[in-house]
Simulated scan of single mutants.
Amino acid sequence: MPTRYAYMITRLDTGRRMSSGTLVLIGDDTAKLADSLLTQNRVEHSYYAGSRRCSVWPQPADVPMPDTAPVTAEHYDG
């Protein structure tokens, strides 16, 4: 069953947001999703060679995107 997820990628050194958005995922392999998003972010933001964190969480369509990842988000560092 498709689930809408939000993601936020931040720099680990400063916590500054580099990328965020929502997408629909079939299944629940958020680790694979985070790996793909981190890879894409490294290409798009190649000026920054440091570590990043990708936070992923279910995000209902009728709820606005938060400014920071919620405490319940899954976090993947890369």
Results as ranks from 00 to 15, higher is better:
Val63Trp: 02
Ala49His: 08
Glu44Leu: 14
Arg52Thr: 06
Thr68Val: 14
Arg53Gln: 13
Val63Gln: 07
Trp57Val: 07
Val63Arg: 03
Tyr48Trp: 13
Thr68Ser: 11
Val43Gln: 13
Pro60Gln: 11
Pro58Asn: 09
Ser51Arg: 14
Ala69Trp: 01
Val56Gln: 00
Tyr47Trp: 15
Thr68Trp: 05
Pro66Gly: 04
Ser51Asp: 15
Arg52Val: 04
Asp62Pro: 00
Ser46Trp: 12
Glu74Asp: 14
Val63Tyr: 01
Ser55Phe: 00
Trp57Tyr: 11
Met65Ile: 13
Ala49Trp: 08
Val71Arg: 10
Val71Thr: 13
Ala69Leu: 12
Val56Lys: 00
Tyr76Glu: 10
Ala61Tyr: 01
Tyr76Phe: 15
Glu74Asn: 10
Ser55Lys: 01
Ala69Arg: 02
Ala61Gly: 04
Ser46Val: 07
Ala69Ser: 13
Pro66Ala: 02
Val63Met: 04
Pro66His: 02
Pro66Trp: 03
Cys54Leu: 08
Tyr47Lys: 12
Ala61Thr: 03
Val71Phe: 04
Pro60Arg: 08
Pro66Cys: 06
Glu74Tyr: 04
Arg53Trp: 00
Arg52Lys: 11
Tyr47Phe: 13
Arg53Leu: 10
Val43Lys: 12
Val63Asn: 00
His75Lys: 11
Pro64Thr: 07
Asp62Glu: 11
Gln59Lys: 02
Glu44Cys: 07
Pro60Trp: 04
Arg52Asn: 11
Arg52Gln: 15
Pro58Asp: 06
Ser51His: 15
Pro60Phe: 06
Glu74Gln: 15
Cys54Val: 09
Ala69Ile: 09
Trp57Glu: 09
Val43Cys: 05
Met65His: 03
Ala61Leu: 05
Ala49Asn: 08
Asp62Cys: 02
Arg52Phe: 08
Asp67Cys: 06
Pro64Tyr: 01
Pro60Leu: 06
Thr72Gln: 14
Pro60Ile: 10
Cys54Ala: 15
Ser46Asp: 15
Met65Lys: 03
Ala49Gly: 06
Tyr48Lys: 08
Tyr47Arg: 12
Met65Ala: 06
Pro70Tyr: 06
Tyr47His: 12
Glu44Gly: 14
Ala49Ser: 08
Thr68Phe: 09
Cys54Met: 06
Trp57Leu: 10
Glu44Pro: 00
Ala49Met: 09
Arg52Asp: 09
Val71Ile: 06
Ser51Phe: 06
Glu74His: 12
Pro64Lys: 05
Gly50Gln: 12
Ser46Cys: 11
Ser55Thr: 05
Ala49Lys: 09
Glu74Pro: 01
Val56Phe: 02
Val56Thr: 02
Trp57Pro: 01
His45Pro: 00
Ser46Gly: 05
Glu44Ile: 05
Ser51Ala: 15
Cys54Glu: 03
Val43Arg: 10
Pro70Ala: 04
Ala69Gln: 07
Ser46Glu: 11
Val43Leu: 10
Ala73Met: 09
